[in-house]
Amino acid sequence: MTETEEKADPPAVMIEPIDISKLDPDFREGIRSMPNGEELSACFACSTCTAACPIASTWKYKPHQLIRMILLGMRKEVLSSEEIWLCLTCFECQERCPQNVRVTDIFFDCKNLAAEEGMIPDSIVGLARELTDKGQLYVVTADWEREDMDLEPEVPGLSTEEFKTILKGTRTGRIVGGDE
């Protein structure tokens, strides 16, 4: 005679913790060995960088958290984060850091690493395509502005052909061209 049905124990933790042993300890050392990463480990998480950042209030991962994630070895999360691409590169964080961590430059390095692994947001690929297709990021569309200022509709002497050729041979070209 069964008195009660066997119930599964409730899970010990409701939120699955991040398993430190599954993270990549080489990521920290990789970033640290780059020219901008020398002072990475000096970070003591005071969050001055986040206080300084003009746009981090809307970010999921704040600058100090991204640095902590690098230190812990959360390679995948950092390189796939959109924040490293949203960074304005205004260098406020880097200027204010009391431990001389090159926060902005480190995010730049992260972008390069992410690009090498093909983890670039579509919006950034779109920008690269603009560059390789048009040879310039901002094409004059509102020619009435030029007209108002008594300027001729086209920028005189502008030639974008050379840029297009050059960019196709660079990393920008590779980003757009996929696995070329």
Partner: peptide, 15 residues
């Protein structure tokens, strides 16, 4: 050991 990281607002698991 599971520790709460208040800077990341994440739980971390260590052995």
């Amino acid at each position: 050991i599971i520790a709460y990281d208040s800077l990341l607002d994440k739980y971390l698991k260590f052995n």
